[in-house]
């Protein structure tokens, strides 16, 4: 399932996938695959992404039923 919330938060921060990847310390493909829902990140990576985008885990990674 695509992570639209992550993509929206990144765009709101005016960051490209590459820029977010650089801040977090991962490759652009990893960010792309997380947004596409094709890669499940670990908790530490989720936290790093949340910190980079000034959001909480709930905001970006909690799926509503």
């Amino acid at each position: 399932m695509k992570n639209i919330k992550l993509k929206m938060a990144r765009v709101e921060k005016d960051l490209s996938q590459e820029e977010l990847a650089q801040i977090v310390g991962v490759s652009r493909q990893t960010i792309g695959l997380i947004e596409l829902g094709k890669y499940n990140p670990s908790l530490s990576l989720c936290v790093a992404i949340c910190k980079a985008l000034s959001r909480t885990l709930n905001d970006l990674f909690w799926e509503e039923d």
Partner: peptide, 10 residues
């Protein structure tokens, strides 16, 4: 130190 390793590559 808080920069995470790219776990997908690992």
């Amino acid at each position: 130190n808080s920069v995470v390793e790219d776990e997908r590559i690992v």
